[in-house]
Each structure stands twice: as C-alpha cells, then as structure tokens.
Amino acid sequence: MKPLEITLGAASIVMFAGAVLGLAPELQLGSISPPAGLKPYTLSERRGRATYVDLGCMYCHSQQPRDKVQAPDEERGWGRAATPGDYSYDRPHLLGTMRTGPDLLNIGVRQPSEDWHLLHLYQPRAVVPGSIMPSYPFLFVKKDRNLLYPGDRTLKVPPPYDEPGVAVVVTEEARDLVAYLKSLKRNHPTDELPPPVPPPEEAKP
C-alpha cells in the first residue's frame, strides 16, 4: 500500500470511531432535558465543585452507582442506578473510574451533616478509623484560641487530632466544598430506567 492510502485509511477509521463513541451519544443524549427533581448547582456549590476537581477527588471516588442487578451499590446506600439525566448540569463530568473510597453521587443523601464533612476533610481518621483518604489541613486555618475574630467558624476536633490552645477555623473554600458534597443527591424519580422487574414468585411448598 502507498503512504497516502495508509494515511487516509488510518485517519478515517479513527474519525469514524470518534463519531460512534462521541457524536452518536451526543445526538442521542445531548437533548435530554434536566429532570424536574434535579436543581442546578448554586454558586457556592459550583465553587465547591471546582475545588473537588482541583484536589482530584475523582481519582478515588466515582459518581455512578451501578444497577442492583449488577452490583450491591444500592444496598450500600449509594443510590439507584445513575441515568444520563442525572448529569444534566455536570461539566466536567466526574463519573470517575476508581473506588478507593465510596461512590459519592448520593453522599448528600446519606450524610447531610456539615460538621461531619468538615471534620472528615480536616482529618478523615477522626471520623472513619482506618480511612486512607488524605487529610486536607490547608482547607482550614489554625489560630490561637484567644485571637479569634467574631464570626470565625471553628471546628471541634476530637483527640488525638486536636492541639492545645489551637482553634481550627473553617475557610470559605471548605464550606463551598461541603456545600457541593451535600448537593450530591440523585434520588429524584426518573423515567430513564426500565421498570423494576417483579421478584420471581416463591415456589409453593
């Protein structure tokens, strides 16, 4: 074969694959309107989402529960199988490919406490013994207990992670990130999933 034939053949194959794997899904799913039960992110949640991207949370946390037929994701409290509509406001997508930590698409449903999230970000092992999540001390400011400003929000850190005389002050960035985590709820009804299969009838004795 001539170089031109190889070049054209190779280029057209990869473009065709791009059309199948990229353009076709865009045509099929791009026009789906956001589900009624899903709210757009607020400004604070969007800032928190940017921090989620910046700190690379998606390298250890997926956001795509699998169907209960395939895996026990729903039994773990991670939520129903995800649908394309669930990601109507997601850019960049954060589906993820790794579960060093649990799936987070419904973390806002199963863990609504802001205090829990803040402490978990400051020192994961203070709330989840044995966790291997990194701690994020730079999302907080350590101050002398006596030099706090009025309005400083402090974090109650349990031993052995507390330091005497030191107050841990929550930054705006940490609060935004937690706002984003709490917004992760995909428990609205969806018509994008097939109707549930009725359980097989028990055999009569």
């Binding site: 694959a17 794997l21 109507s88 406001y89 589906l95």
Partner: peptide, 17 residues
C-alpha cells in the same frame, strides 16, 4: 475540542474514546 463543549455522559464517552 469535543470535551470543551460537551457535558455529562457524552463528554465521558469522548473522554474514554
């Protein structure tokens, strides 16, 4: 180029293509 304009699931499929 495509991932600059897409979002959600189609962006993920181009991502893995």
């Amino acid at each position: 180029g495509f991932s600059l304009f897409a979002h959600g699931v189609p962006q993920a499929t181009v991502n893995w293509w």
